[in-house]
Nucleic acid binder design. Sequence first.
RNA 1: GGUCCUGUGGCCGAGUGGUUAGGCAGAGCUCUGCAAAAGCUCGUACAGCGGUUCGACCCCGCUCGGGACCUCCA
Length: 486
Amino acid sequence: MPKALRIYNTLSRTLEDFTPLHANLVGMYVCGPTVYSYLHLGNCRTFSSFDMIFRYLKYAGYKVRYVRNITDAGHLEGDLDEGDDKFAKRAKIEQLEPMEIVQKYTQYFHDVMRDFNCLPPSIEPTATGHIIEQIEMTKELLSHGWAYEVEGTIYFDVEKYSKENNYGILSNRNLNDLLDGTRTLSGQEDKRGRLDFALWIKAKPEHLMQWQSPWGMGFPGWHIECSAMSKKYLGAQFDIHGGGMDLISTHHTNEIAQNCACNGVAPVRYWMHTNMLTVNGVRMSKSAGNGFLPDELFSGSHPLLEKGYSPMSVRFFMMQSHYRSTLDFSNEALQAAEKGYARLMTAIRLIDTLKTEGDSNDMVVALRSKCEAAMSEDFNTPIAIAHLFEGVTFINNVNDGRERISPQDKINLKQLYQDFVFDVFGLKEEAVIHNNKMDGVMQILLDQRAEAKARKDFETSDRLRDKLLNLGITIQDGKDGATYSL
RNA sequence: GGUCCUGUGGCCGAGUGGUUAGGCAGAGCUCUGCAAAAGCUCGUACAGCGGUUCGACCCCGCUCGGGACCUCCA
């Protein structure tokens, strides 16, 4: 029996008890990246958040099928009939085939996911791999009158849909407000209604990515892929659908409309949305030009950064805020996270060396319950982390002889940190740059220095320390001899 | 203009009708030849004004500020 869980549902805008469609099984779909350029940190935050959610669902005892798509076709600039798709545009700029663009940025995406220690999803379907399914769905919608064709392009009829359905159910807006807010854009004359959107788009002859369809050569609209693929792998109705908040009003709204019209049933029971990453209080986005590339963050090459931050420091930084809150990026915040993360990891490493004595108490058990309670309340990672830091103080106190721990509690404590820090939060030890030769050379120097100190020749010992420091090597004197760090 | 979210101590960031969030920074202490590192301990807070209440940072209203979406974006 999986652990009870409450999830904030965008549909109801409240916390709801989570009940999966099929006991013990969870179907989760998350909108993946459009691989026409490098993804930035904002994207990483969303994928890391859902990675954590995926991991906790498994911890809680569910069997999860996690589907995250790759959008590699059909994404128009500005959603206009006339627009180029993003891949075609990028292909021209980089002088590559569109599929080379797709390959390049998919690869980059996967590399970054690995850097952030995100587990691969159960299924990672691509839009180009599901053209047939998208055509089938479009046919289905056409045949029931939910869509219409204008010269080889198929549009979804939002106003017709709205007569029987609540189109703005997810964004909590009514049709008139939506119509008022819609600007008249050039190139949309073919559409009957201003909110109508394309399911299938007629391709111009020079267009590089196009497929045969009943309506001639063309390519799919953006929204239809998620509808088609989620249906194929998770069914017409499934448990969780996730994505960034920015997808609510257009992409997910249209997805719901397509699914409801086609399948006669609301596709998703729990809609989950992650909040935006901000820089100086403003949303990080490609168009705003304030996007951080993962590489720039790791290396510190971005102008706004004073130094580089490791992937795990950044992941920890993200886990220290709730997924539905905006998270602001700054040097100070990143440095605080980096140090806090180091403290946490140091304490975890210490667990194995703890001396045990006495009887068990319920402290460790209570700590686990507190972490579970936090996580079961809409995946509240910051609270769980706060509890884990209480444990850090405890570990250090045991280490300093101020507290004691029983053998069994020590095993439980180790398991607790394994479960939450590594398995649920998805953090890991980062390799330190050490090798045998370096260690050997350093040991010689440390021995020399120890000898000097033994003779009370502090001039020599301090000189060694200072010179090494100039090279970026810090000496730490401890009770059991000195160690160094780079 | 419409639909929402938000305003917590030096910084980041949780949360609750009456009880410690947590991290970083800061202060004190321990360790140390000195230093660094590490560890322990400890402050300062809930935008403003009203209201509800025995009691509000937490509920309600207003004011002011910040942000998101309504156009591609996780």
